[in-house]
């Protein structure tokens, strides 16, 4: 490296100021101009987070939100060279720093996780689906699912409820399937029962519906007369919704 330590240090000081906004002494700068850099840089980060997490931004009081973004940008070294991936670092930082408790927002991790997953699935690289046919046996033939999906579990119904109080009141076990519709490119999501979440997880592994149903009693799933029929109804519905693509060929 040809850079002298003094120049290196000046660049570090300047960038540290942009990240924290804390006063620094730099030689040869025009008075009152540094603040524009801090504003430009910070506004970019803030805008990115606001657009990535619109529900969280709406729910969280402005002072708390600003504190979060400032904390994140000052103390986390942003790694992504693609701005659209930066919200993942924000979400991860929130989880690692226990923001749920620090800011007394119990559903925060779930909400940030859900909003990030929508963006991630929307932008994710195309994943080719394995070959499939439209003819097959719903019970005996392994199904081919849309590979562009994510299965998530939450303690709060962040995907169903926008009201923070109701989210907290309805704490429980929630499962959400997000997938990208190959035709429209839109991200769709659906709330799943624990059984359907288990079913989906196993289907991804190539296990047949018959084998998954056989396993149901071990999960304390009551194997009612209609479980098989209801399960197939769900899968047929998901075929219409472009999540179940067909049968392994």
């Amino acid at each position: 490296m040809n850079l002298l330590p003094d120049t290196y240090h000046i660049q570090q000081t300047f960038s540290a100021y942009c990240r924290t906004g804390e006063k620094v002494r730099l030689p040869g700068v025009t008075p009152n101009r540094l603040k524009y850099y801090r504003a430009l840089v910070f506004n970019m980060i803030n805008d990115t987070m606001e657009s990535a997490f619109p529900i969280a931004f709406k729910n969280i009081p402005v002072r708390k939100w600003n504190k979060m973004v400032k904390d994140f940008f000052a103390n986390h070294a942003c790694q992504s060279y693609q701005v659209w991936k930066l919200p993942l670092e924000f979400y991860t930082y929130a989880v690692e720093n226990n923001w749920e408790e620090v800011y007394d927002i119990p559903y925060l991790n779930d909400l940030l996780g859900f909003e990030w997953a929508e963006m991630e699935v929307y932008n994710m690289e195309d994943i080719p689906a394995p070959p499939f046919t439209l003819q097959g046996d719903w019970l005996e033939t392994p199904l081919v699912l849309n590979p562009e999906h994510k299965l998530l579990s939450f303690a709060y119904p962040v995907h169903l409820e926008a009201n923070p109080k109701k989210m907290i009141q309805n704490k429980g076990a929630y499962f959400v399937l997000l997938y990208r519709d190959a035709e429209t490119g839109n991200v769709e999501f659906i709330d799943l029962s624990p059984w359907l979440a288990f079913l989906t997880e196993q289907l991804v592994l190539g296990i047949t519906v018959r084998d998954i149903l056989d396993y149901a009693p071990q999960l304390n799933i009551t194997d009612t007369d209609t479980l098989e029929e209801d399960t197939i109804d769900f899968l047929q519905h998901m075929q219409q919704q472009h999540f179940v693509l067909g049968f392994q060929s």
Binding site: Q11, S15, L40, I45
Partner: peptide, 12 residues
């Protein structure tokens, strides 16, 4: 700088 992106153009 310092292994952190700032997503804006800082003067050298």
């Amino acid at each position: 700088c310092d292994n952190a992106h700032m997503y804006d153009l800082l003067p050298i």
